[in-house]
């Protein structure tokens, strides 16, 4: 629901505060063959393989959104800092409000996590993108890292304005009848409620070690899930898979549930909850 102007407008009208685009690269990319997305008992497994129309075709969608005044965070992926900088400059020219660097997609060769696991590359890419743009730059990182705080720190050292955590968790499903992995790419990324404890732990660990804001994502389905992320140290949250579990009005539902919880617990400012678990 994040690929074309019409969908983004619909999600915005359903109560989201801002919309992160599908990750966009330099050239059109079909992604992997199907099966690419399946549902498991406790979450969603996908390896869509970064399908996107390419930045030049995506321009028209972004210009439409600009006219509608919808806050858009442009997600981009590249194989080196040069690609990231080109994409970032174009995104900024087409009017996005902020950038998200996808350094964490777990299933595309030469992109995402393959770069995002190297703290030096993360720092270099972030630094170069920051230098060539004026809008806020967030770095999205992966839970599939032993050195997650080190990577988050290197993004901070590269002058990132915030960290987005987490992307999907590397996972696989084997079909018993066919005795083979279901996804064509075999390995995919797991999302939905099952990954929430992993996301919470990542946000908690990162926020102990860095000073820039964190955007929490991973399994958020209810207002209470969002509050748990705030307590772990997130200043804002993103919602993906829950669109499937609770419908498009999930954004409004989550906002309402946060308000109810705060009222019940006599909180007036959300900021009082951020990092509350770090006592």
């Amino acid at each position: 629901m994040d690929k074309d102007a019409g969908s983004i407008e619909r999600v915005f009208n359903s109560g989201a505060g801002a919309i992160v685009t599908k990750s966009i690269g330099l050239k059109p990319r079909n992604g992997f063959p199907n099966p690419t997305v399946i549902e498991l008992e406790h979450g969603i497994l996908n390896a869509i393989g970064l399908p996107n129309p390419g930045i030049d075709n995506f321009k028209e969608e972004l210009l439409k959104l600009k006219k509608l005044n919808i806050p858009v965070i442009g997600s981009i992926f590249g194989s080196d800092y040069k690609e990231f900088v080109t994409l970032a400059e174009k995104m900024q020219n087409y009017g996005v409000n902020a950038l998200e660097l996808n350094l964490s997609c777990p299933h595309a060769k030469g992109y995402g996590l393959e770069i995002g696991c190297d703290p030096n590359l993360v720092k270099e890419i972030t630094f170069k993108v920051k230098k060539s743009t004026k809008i806020p730059v967030f770095v999205k990182i992966s839970p599939n890292l032993a050195n997650i705080t080190e990577v988050a720190k290197s993004a901070e050292e590269g002058n990132a304005d915030g960290i987005v955590a987490i992307n999907t968790v590397k996972a696989m499903k084997i079909d018993l009848e066919l005795q083979m992995p279901v996804l064509s790419n075999k390995i995919g990324g797991y999302s939905g409620n099952a990954v929430k404890p992993i996301g919470i732990r990542c946000v908690y660990e990162i926020s102990k070690n860095i000073d820039i804001p964190i955007i929490g994502v991973g399994g958020i389905t209810t207002g209470k899930d969002a509050i748990e992320y705030f307590m772990a140290g997130a200043s804002a949250v993103q919602v993906g898979s829950a669109i499937y579990y609770r419908g498009l009005d999930v954004f409004k539902k989550i906002c309402d549930e946060i308000k109810i919880w705060m009222k019940h617990h006599e909180y007036n400012n959300l900021s009082d909850l951020i990092g509350a678990a770090h006592k």
Binding site: R10, N34, T36, S241
Partner: peptide
């Protein structure tokens, strides 16, 4: 179509109709 159940956004027409 990719997912078939409304999550991937591949099949949208108009204003986000899946």
């Amino acid at each position: 179509m990719k997912c078939g159940f409304g999550i991937c956004g591949q099949c949208c027409v108009g204003k986000g109709l899946r």
